[in-house]
């Protein structure tokens, strides 16, 4: 509870804030958009799905060739490898071009390739990043099977290449692999737009409209973070809760209201029946107040906004 660790933490936080977030992309219109960078795990899963799809096609082709007697068992492996190679390269390039940066695996997992600079994906970028995939993903993948103690130098080289291919995405904030770096792309999660109801416009519970009035100085304590936390709490649907959970929820509401009352100096006690209405009213008043302050250029990120020396 000493001040020292707190200041250290805050300075680290401010440094992190100074760096531009990897999750924003500047659109050509000049409005920064939030597009969350996709992690290694989800991208690897998409890759596995794509490999499974192309592999299935290859197996079908090899079986067909076998039925037509066009191949002998000795060359079966080589023909399979060739078919895999000849199918997967056009597959990745064509799907990413046709579906705007999504292969089938990426479509299933709702991730997408976008241009790093915010402009649209170019053909060159798609071709380049998928060709580099050969050297970065498939080559290490096959090299992994050829690691062999009898040729230490070659094995060491292959191992170094595999490690590097995996480390590059881990070491940069956009999780770009080498092909992404060269092509100027990165992979993002597709955002899902869901419009929830506006809590302020809701019809207040009957009989309590205008019942709770907050004064301006009472609304000076909290910032946007607390407001939006309260918003999250108010959006919890308590009508479909199990009885035990519902009781717990109501108890939490009561405790929160007690803390708010103590903090803002709200004298009148709130009867348990009015708890949701009180919070609703407090949310509306607090939001109105903070939005008004924001219009005047006084952005309040959280409850520490009034402490001097912290922003």
């Amino acid at each position: 509870m000493t001040a020292a660790p707190q200041t250290r933490r805050s300075s680290r936080r401010s440094r992190r804030r100074d760096r531009p977030s990897p999750n924003t992309v500047m659109s050509p219109e000049g409005v920064p958009l939030t597009l969350r960078v996709a992690g290694i795990g989800v991208r690897l899963s998409a890759q596995v799905i794509d490999v499974a799809i192309t592999m299935t096609a290859v197996i079908c082709i090899v079986i067909l060739l076998g039925l037509l007697n066009l191949t002998t068992p000795q060359t079966l492996y080589a023909i399979g490898a060739m078919a895999f190679f000849l199918i997967r390269i056009p597959y990745y390039i064509a799907t990413e071009l046709v579906w705007n940066g999504q292969t089938l695996g990426k479509r299933l997992l709702k991730i997408k390739v976008i241009g790093h600079d915010g402009r649209s994906l170019t053909t060159h970028a798609v071709v380049l990043r998928n060709l580099m995939k050969e050297a970065e993903v498939f080559l290490p993948g096959t090299l992994l099977f050829t690691l062999d103690a009898t040729t230490p130098l070659l094995s060491l080289l292959s191992f170094g290449w595999i490690v590097m291919a995996f480390l590059i995405p881990l070491l940069n904030p956009h999780r770009q692999r080498l092909g992404d770096l060269l092509a100027g792309t990165h992979v993002i999660h597709l955002p899902v737009p869901v419009l929830l109801r506006d809590l302020v416009r809701e019809t207040p519970t009957r009989g309590v409209a205008g019942k709770f009035v907050f004064l301006a100085h009472q609304l000076d304590h909290y910032g946007a973070f607390e407001l939006q936390t309260l918003e999250g709490l108010l959006r919890v649907d308590d009508r479909r809760m199990a009885p035990a959970a519902y009781g717990h929820h109501r108890k939490t509401l009561g405790e929160i209201i007690e803390r708010i009352r103590r903090k803002i100096g709200y004298a009148d006690p709130v009867p348990p029946a009015d708890h949701p209405a009180f919070l609703q009213a407090f949310y509306a008043a607090q939001r109105a107040h903070l939005e008004q302050r924001q219009l005047f250029g006084d952005r309040r990120a959280d409850k520490h906004h009034a402490v001097p020396g912290r922003k």
Partner: peptide, 12 residues
């Protein structure tokens, strides 16, 4: 602030 809470918020 009291009048704003009746649903005439600018953002609403």
């Amino acid at each position: 602030t009291a009048s704003a809470s009746t649903g005439l918020l600018r953002s609403a």
